[in-house]
Design a protein around this nucleic acid. Structure first.
Length: 665
RNA sequence: CCACCCGUAGCUCAGUGGAUAGAGCAAGCGGUUCCUAACCGCUAGGUCGCAGGUUCGAUCCCUGCCGGGUGGACCA
């Protein structure tokens, strides 16, 4: 049961009987921050007192008089200016926990009364390009939301909108036609395709950098230098304010200049890499029009060129399998993976339909949807007739509405695309006004993964950090920590107890878990600094700490030779006597609330916060309340039941986040 | 220039229209004849960027400013 929701309902009834039309004040029932104010508190008497022009404490009293919570709470207390403090009855808590013990699948989480249908769009990698650090957040957050919404009883459809129809495939096709090593391709398709992609992309980049990017930057540098000279002349201004402004602009321009020069250096290095390698330099000279040629291969694929389509058909399965291998490691699955290519033949229809409904205007030869409040239009077809990702996204929504009739479509995509989604949603609302079903559309955005220098996490050479290598390193570091800890295990605890195989498996789960957890524990809207040391730390809000808590609970069952099934069905009663027991019991009951919070604003960090709190409370309990050596059998059984629920709740919570547990570590 | 996001302890980050703003790390102190010390407890550390406003009450909402990031017609 969702205790908070229940209390709010009780308050809603009391509010309605006291003053009709005030039920929304029931939202002001909240968990107390400080245990000395009880378990929950209602803060609605103050605003209501204001509205009714009566002293808030009197209103509080009237509310309490009308409030029916005698089955749940101790008599409510009124404190301070009119806070109503609620303490849950121990008997109610124990009954609830006792019921949860036999509630195998739900752990006290009651399914929502009105299930909704969600389409969840996350991960969306490009085939051919290896997955990198930028894909973690979307994948991990999306998968967690998928599981949490499902646990709450919603119908959820995950759809991986794979980039399988873009320029990167043109690169592979071009690479195949000019540079392929057939033997290598027959031997192992993906590594050879990957080599081709990298080679072509390097050559394209080389030419673009030489002929476009470097001159552009050089010109910008000249402009900034010229501006700087003007600014130096302008520092002798009369007003303080003007001088300050000028000084700021100067600083900014200087900073900009430094950045530009750094960029220029790195561009020159990318050119030098090719120039310094005779073989590469020769290829570059030979393929001087490679950029345009790649686009032509892509365009040919799009218009149905038989050769290119055949190559696409041949290569795509291997590329998808490669991506699936990463998902396998991450434990992520999808109900559907309808890539961009799937919508290819619907794009023209989308533009036609928008045109027929007079939503499209032509501007500079491009077909655009002009939107209120936006400077730039949403372009659905380019001058040259080609469609864009805007068109694909519209077609995708259209398909999803037809196929799944969802109540909500959720996009887990990084914050840099927020403008695109604003425009997409605005366009869809225009479309909805005229025949399309209106639904909840959410851009669940997230911040950038930063390096320890506070800049986007990159390799030293400036390229994106590959996801595979990232996972490998986390596992490797975890393995080292696991070994060190086990080796250091004191003889009084029986010395090291993990076999080499076990150490390996534990390292896998801890390493991968650490990366996922670090990602999920941060508020998704902010950027966060990626640090192996922090995410693998044994203390604090980390996966390791949670997994350790779980392993410690489980070891009690092992040591005590406890038959859990017999324990659960044996009629032992659960009691909450010590403060640590009660705190743990209350936390266990609140699992359902934590999940509701996650669903309310699509933020998994509410669940990590909850689990960290639960694990902390378990640690206090563990420290203060002996289980196997409890003073009597009744206490022992009661505590074993608490341990059982803790272990199951931790495991379930982590499972929903996509994190595996271990029995020993 | 415009739009959006961010600014909380030395560091990394939570948090909320409510009572004395939290955690981990780092610093200091204490705890292991006892179920995993990968732990627990305690101390210290803050003008919640600045200034106004709304409110019984603001770190949270509004306005302005300062500082940082991101985006801004035919890439995705």
């Amino acid at each position: 049961m969702n205790l908070l929701a229940e209390l709010r309902q009780r308050f809603a009834a009391a509010l309605e009987s006291l003053e009709p039309g005030t039920v929304e004040l029931a939202e002001m029932v909240l968990p107390s921050k400080d245990a000395k104010h009880g378990d929950y508190q209602a803060n609605c008497a103050m605003p209501l007192g204001k509205r009714l022009k009566q002293p808030p404490r009197e209103i509080a009293q009237q509310l309490v008089d009308r409030l029916e919570v005698s089955d749940l709470c101790e008599p409510p207390e009124i404190a301070g200016p009119g806070f109503i403090n609620l303490r849950i009855q121990d008997t109610w808590l124990t009954e609830q926990l006792q019921a949860t013990l036999s509630d195998k699948s739900q752990l006290g989480v009651t399914p929502v009364a009105e299930p909704r249908t969600f389409v969840l769009d996350y991960s969306s990698p490009n085939v051919a390009k290896p997955m990198h650090v930028g894909h973690i957040r979307s994948t991990v957050i999306g998968a967690a939301l998928y599981r949490v919404l499902k646990q709450l009883g919603h119908r959820v459809i995950s759809d991986n909108h794979i980039g399988d129809w873009g320029t990167q495939f043109g690169m592979i096709i071009y690479g195949y036609k000019h540079f392929v090593d057939e033997a290598a391709l027959a031997e192992a398709m993906v590594p050879e395709l990957s080599r081709l992609y990298k080679l072509v992309s390097q050559l394209v980049d080389y030419h673009a950098t030489r002929s476009q990017k470097i001159p552009d930057i050089e010109q910008k540098i000249n402009e900034v230098v010229a501006r700087l000279e003007e600014m130096h002349d302008a520092t002798e201004l009369e007003h303080d304010k003007d001088r300050k402004k000028a000084a700021k602009k100067l600083r900014q321009a200087e900073g900009q200049l430094v950045d530009l020069r750094k960029t220029l250096d790195s561009l020159r290095r990318t050119v030098a890499v090719v120039d310094d390698d005779p073989a590469l330099a020769a290829l570059a000279a030979e393929h001087s029009k490679i950029g345009a040629a790649v686009l032509a291969e892509t365009a040919a694929l799009h218009v149905g060129d038989a050769t290119n389509k055949a190559l696409w058909d041949r290569f795509l399965p291997a590329c998808l399998a490669e991506i699936d291998a990463t998902y396998e490691r991450l434990g992520v699955t999808f109900d559907h993976a309808l890539g961009e290519s799937f919508y290819h033949d619907r794009l023209a229809g989308v533009v036609e339909d928008l045109t027929a409904r007079e939503l499209v205007e032509e501007s500079d030869g491009a077909k655009c949807v002009f939107l209120d409040g936006h400077q730039a239009p949403f372009i659905v077809q380019k001058q040259d007739g080609a469609f864009l990702y805007a068109t694909t996204d519209l077609a995708t929504v259209q398909y999803r509405l037809e196929e799944w009739k969802p109540d909500a479509i959720i996009y887990v995509v990084d914050h840099r695309q927020s403008l695109h989604f604003e425009q997409l949603f605005a366009t869809l609302r225009l479309w909805a006004r005229d025949g399309m079903k209106e639904i909840e559309l959410q851009h669940v955005s997230f911040g950038t993964v930063l390096g320890e220098d506070g800049k986007p996490y990159k390799t030293r050479s400036g390229s994106a950090v590959g996801l595979t290598g990232l996972l490998d390193e986390a596992v490797e570091r975890a393995h080292k920590i696991v070994c060190e800890n086990d080796d250091a295990r004191d003889e009084s605890y029986g010395g090291p107890f993990l076999s080499a195989d076990e150490r390996q498996q534990v390292a896998q789960r801890i390493g991968i878990g650490a990366i996922k957890y670090a990602d999920l524990a941060h508020n998704r809207t902010s950027d966060y600094v990626f640090s192996y040391d922090k995410m693998l730390a044994m203390n604090g809000n980390t996966a390791t700490y949670m997994q350790y808590s779980y392993a410690r609970v489980r070891s009690i069952f092992g040591k005590g030779d406890v038959d859990l099934v017999a324990l659960r069905t044996g009629g032992a009663s659960l009691r909450l006597e010590e403060v640590q027991e009660r705190a743990l019991g209350l936390a266990l009951v609140q699992f359902s609330e934590a999940l509701s919070r996650v669903a309310a604003d699509y933020r998994p960090n509410h669940l990590t916060t909850y689990l960290f709190d639960l694990a902390s409370k378990y640690s206090s309990f563990f420290e203060n309340c002996p289980v196997l050596k409890a003073e009597d059998d009744v206490t022992r059984d009661s505590r074993l039941l608490l341990c059982d629920l803790t272990a199951r709740t931790l495991a379930r919570g982590l499972e929903l986040l996509g994190i595996e547990t271990v029995e020993r570590m």
